[in-house]
């Protein structure tokens, strides 16, 4: 009797509620599902992936069919779309576009990782909490606005009446701005890519014990060599991951080439769009998409193989 009165009533209610929940679960036989719970929790993700895979299968299906653009009718199975991609009249243009997309994306990837790594290192190692938080917030700012807004912002800076042209005229070089050049596209893409790379490298650097760097210093390694022999190799999985993500996003870039490239420097995505909307040719567009996807996938596979797979496995190998 005493026990009951000494227990706080609200605590008692909380426990009783739990009892009810457990009783209901028992009645419903929910416990039988217990072993499958991890799989059940995966279900939404699986559904999404299945949907995407379905879409890709459909693209493959389309790309391997011929298409009569005049009659607007699907023909039999064929490699026609892939042939048209590389053959005249537009073959050279397509290949040029593909090359441009890959080269600029690669340069963005290299630049973003090279500039993101020191920023991530600063965030991890700085003693000042305020500096760390400020840097993190600044990194997130570019993500707060839409890509089109950012692109037009850069257009103002890089355009003929913009900051760059103004500074150039001061130095004496009379340029009309750099809009429409690969450099402008690259700069526009770097703005999100650097913070992205930084945030992706961050966890890998956090895992590096600062004593390793101190130990390297006591053994006679100046800072540059500490970086080369200790920090970079240990951050390799993070670097590889960041490079893969930045590259994949860059390869699919649309707004920056359209706006900062003034349409003169289309990426694959821009060309696919015009194939889809201007030529109304889903079949050719599918083929181009798949070619780009295949190349990107290959790139990521190589990155993971060269970059991080041994470390990603947690060093369980000999």
């Amino acid at each position: 009797m005493r026990d009951r009165t000494s227990r706080a009533p609200d605590v008692g209610w909380g426990w009783r509620l739990l009892d009810v929940v457990i009783a209901v679960r028992r009645r419903l036989g929910a416990d039988r599902l217990e072993p499958y719970r991890p799989y059940l929790m995966l279900a939404p993700a699986l559904a999404l992936v299945t949907l995407l895979a379905g879409g890709i299968v459909y693209l493959v299906y389309l790309s391997f069919h011929s298409f009569d653009t005049f009659l607007f009718r699907q023909g039999p199975w064929s490699f026609e779309q892939y042939r048209r991609l590389v053959e005249p009249p537009s073959g050279d243009f397509n290949l040029q576009t593909l090359q441009r997309t890959l080269v600029i994306s690669l340069l963005v990837t290299v630049g973003a990782v090279a500039l993101g790594l020191p920023v991530a290192y600063f965030i991890v190692r700085t003693r000042s909490r305020a500096a760390r938080i400020l840097t993190l917030v600044l990194l997130l700012v570019p993500f707060l606005m839409g890509e089109v807004v950012r692109a037009f912002g850069w257009a103002l800076v890089l355009g003929s009446n913009g900051l760059v042209a103004w500074v150039a005229s001061w130095v004496g070089a009379d340029s009309g701005g750099i809009l429409g050049t690969p450099l402008a596209v690259w700069i526009g893409m770097m703005q999100v890519s650097i913070p992205l790379a930084t945030l992706l490298i961050l966890p890998a650097l956090t895992r590096i014990d600062p004593d390793l760097e101190r130990a390297a210093a006591t053994m006679g390694a100046p800072p540059v060599r500490v970086w080369r022999h200790v920090v970079t190799p240990l951050a390799r999985p993070g670097i590889a991951g960041a490079a893969a993500v930045v590259f994949l996003l860059s390869v699919a870039e649309y707004d920056m080439p359209a706006i900062l490239g003034l349409g003169r420097l289309p990426f694959v995505a821009n060309v696919i769009r015009s194939i889809y909307t201007l030529q109304n040719n889903l079949y050719l567009g599918s083929a181009f998409s798949l070619v780009l996807m295949a190349i990107s996938t290959l790139f990521v596979v190589v990155l993971v193989a060269v970059g991080g797979i041994r470390n990603l496995r947690g060093g369980s190998d000999g």
Partner: peptide, 20 residues
């Protein structure tokens, strides 16, 4: 004189062996 020029041997509490 920076650490890397001091020619000192040091064993850390965490040992700080390079895992890679």
């Amino acid at each position: 004189v920076p650490t890397f020029e001091r020619n000192i041997g040091m064993v850390f509490q965490s040992l700080a062996l390079f895992p890679h």
